[in-house]
Structure formats: C-alpha cells, structure tokens
Simulated assay, not measured.
Amino acid sequence: MKSQPLSSPFNVMVHKEMADHIRSWRFIVLMGLIILTFVASMYVSLGNIRSAMSNVNDPDHTFLYLKLLTATDNSMPPFHVFLSFLAPLLGISLGFDAINAEQNSGTLTRLIAQPVYRDNLLLAKFVSALILVSAPFLVLALLMIGGGLVLTGVRIEPQELLRILGFMMISMIYVGFWLSLSITLSVRFRQAATSALTAIGIWLFFTVFYQIIINLIIRSFLPDPTFLTQDQVLRYNELILDLLRIAPNQLYTDASTTLLMPSVRSLGPMTMEQMAGAIPAPLPFRESLMIVWPQVSGLIGATVACFALAYYLFMRREIRS
C-alpha cells in the first residue's frame, strides 16, 4: 500500500492552536461581541440608508454598500469606528498567553523537545489566530453584501466590493499588529496577567492619552496658531498629524475612512489654492489605495517589527522544565 504523506509539524501546530481557540470561551465571547456590534450597526445603517442615499450634497450618496458601513444617526458609531476599539481587544486576547501559558503548564518543554523549530512555534501561534480572525470578518462582509442585496435589490458595484474587501484586509492587518505585540509580551513576561495588562495599557495609552500628550507638548513649544501665517498653520497641522500617526489606531482610522468614503482626497491639510477647481467627486479605488498605502505599510511594518522582536526574545530564552 502507498504510504500517506505526513503533515508538517507547522501544519499540525496550526490546526491544534485553531482547535484550542475555537473551544475557548474568550474566543466565543469576543466573536459574539463583534457579531452583535455588526448587527446593531447594520440595523442603524439600514434605518438611515434612505436619507443618506437621497442627500445629493454628499458625493458618496450613490455607494449603497459603503453607506451600510458608514451611515449612522449618531445614536451609535458606525461599524468601522466600533471595530477600531474591538480589533485590539481581539488581537490581545488571542495572544497574551501564547507562550507563557505553555511554559507555566509545562507543555512548552515537551513541545520544544520534539523536532520542532522555535520559529515554527511562534509562527503557528500567529497564523492560527489570524486565520480565525479573518474568517469571521470575511463572513460578515458577505452577510452585509447579501443582506443589502436582499433588502434593497441594488446590485453591488465592483468598486464597492474592492473597497469593502480592502477594508476587511486592513482590519485583519490591524488585528495582526496587536496580536504580534501581545505574543511579544507573552514571551517577555512569564505571567499571563502581566502580559495582558501591559498590552491593554499600551492600547489605552495610544487610544486615550497619546493625543492629549501630543497636543500639550505642541502647544507648549509652538506659538498661538491665531498669530501664524497660512503656511505656518499648515506646517503646524502637518507636524501634529505626523506625530499622531505614530499611533496604530490613527493609521487604521485614516486607512479605513479613506477606503469607505471615496470622496476623501487627502489625509493632510490643504491650502485654498490646492482646493480651487476641485470637483467634489469620488476617487477611483486605485487612487484611494495610493493615498492610504503609507498607513497600510506602516501597520505591516509595525506588525513585522513586533514579531521579529518576539522571535529574537524567544530564540535567546532558556527553557527549562
């Protein structure tokens, strides 16, 4: 009889990690929160979709399926704003105990004793969690498109489909950054509680306190903007935006807003001369993608840097029974 090919250790570890995540209560709770948020956002968007589509002053009023993700009556934020808060929690919860829980339970020593490379172990932890996050995002996008088609009967345009898929891809990258950061902290700290609190503290710092600190620092060093010329005000605003874009949540907000709102032409301040003669019309998907490419490449670079740091720390770590 012909022998069956053996699965690689990496594939076995990926399947094992995915099974562990699916059976865990924290994954079920987080998926429930994201699904409830999606359903609530779609309910509010569908209730205001007629007024949003009839607003001729809005250059994006013809994009029905994009309006499903952005239209709101101010009773609750749209889905992409909700996701900017939930995505870090999802990445942190799936990676804060990736390594230290294995070591505290004694399974890491037995696992490393097998013919398994350390980098494969870290990569399996990252890939398995990212696959589990990507699948629900793709399902939610398809449900949103299918629900909009059934309820409205309007055919989705190819540009809208590309923008929605691009938004989901950026959301996965954003989750991947926080996942790689939490895995790095799980390698650095032996206790899972310490790594979780550190990751949540970093998320709260960039979400709440970073913008406040930047504004205080800028105002203490620069003169009052009311006495500046137009060029100086532009440089003043560009400096603030450049500093704010160090935060990953600002990069994600800029990228998701530009893709879901085709009328956004620039992510920085513009002079009256640059705006003169500009027709308020939506941009093609390719030009919107070129605008947000620095933000996307920044998120990818930060994710790779965090994972490289986790690899460096894990390779130099001594594992004992």
Results as ranks from 00 to 15, higher is better:
79 F>W: 05
139 V>R: 02
86 L>T: 13
144 M>P: 01
301 G>F: 09
175 V>Q: 05
11 N>L: 14
99 I>P: 08
141 A>Y: 00
206 F>W: 15
195 S>M: 03
257 T>M: 03
257 T>G: 09
214 I>W: 05
287 E>T: 08
33 L>V: 04
11 N>K: 13
215 N>Y: 10
3 S>V: 15
157 E>D: 10
171 S>Y: 01
68 L>Y: 00
248 P>I: 15
286 R>G: 07
102 E>Y: 08
283 L>K: 05
124 A>F: 12
5 P>F: 15
288 S>F: 06
231 D>W: 02
32 G>A: 06
107 T>H: 04
231 D>V: 06
27 F>M: 08
214 I>C: 09
256 S>Q: 05
314 F>I: 07
146 G>H: 01
172 M>K: 02
233 V>T: 07
224 D>K: 15
103 Q>D: 12
43 Y>E: 07
243 L>C: 08
25 W>Y: 01
217 I>S: 06
214 I>N: 11
102 E>N: 13
299 L>I: 13
259 L>Y: 10
55 N>V: 02
162 L>C: 04
159 Q>W: 01
202 I>Y: 03
176 G>D: 06
146 G>R: 00
41 S>A: 14
101 A>D: 08
98 A>R: 08
282 P>S: 03
91 G>C: 12
45 S>V: 00
133 V>I: 15
258 T>W: 08
